[in-house]
Computed example of a mutant assay.
Amino acid sequence: MFLTVAEVATVMRVSKMTVYRLVHSGHLPAIRVGRSFRVPEQAVHDYLRESYVGVESA
């Protein structure tokens, strides 16, 4: 399943511009469909899992 840039932004709770930056920098894989990008849903979840920074309890 593929997500639009707007859908990815909603899932990640960031702006669409941030998603475009991640796509263009290669941190988030995407394919072009016409003039827009589609991002594999699993790639979004993988990116979030890898980027997760746990907070230790004091």
Rank of each mutant, 00 (worst) to 15 (best):
E7L: 00
G34I: 06
Y20H: 12
F2Q: 07
T10D: 13
M1A: 14
A30M: 08
R49W: 08
P40I: 05
V33A: 07
V11E: 03
M17L: 14
A58W: 12
H24T: 15
S25Y: 05
M1E: 12
E41R: 11
S15M: 08
V19W: 00
Y20S: 03
S36D: 10
K16P: 03
E50Q: 15
E41A: 14
A9R: 07
V53Y: 05
S25T: 14
T10V: 07
E50Y: 08
L28S: 03
V39R: 00
G54E: 14
Q42S: 14
E56F: 14
M17F: 11
R38A: 01
M12N: 04
V5C: 02
Y47L: 15
H27N: 14
T4A: 03
V8W: 00
V19L: 02
A9V: 01
S57C: 12
V55P: 04
S25F: 04
T4H: 00
Y47A: 05
I31V: 15
K16E: 15
V5M: 06
E41N: 06
M12G: 03
R21H: 13
G54F: 10
A9N: 06
T18I: 08
F2W: 12
L3P: 00
A58N: 12
R38W: 02
H27M: 14
L22G: 02
A6S: 14
V44A: 00
A43I: 00
V8G: 02
H24S: 14
V14K: 12
T4Q: 02
H24W: 09
G54M: 10
V39N: 00
V55W: 11
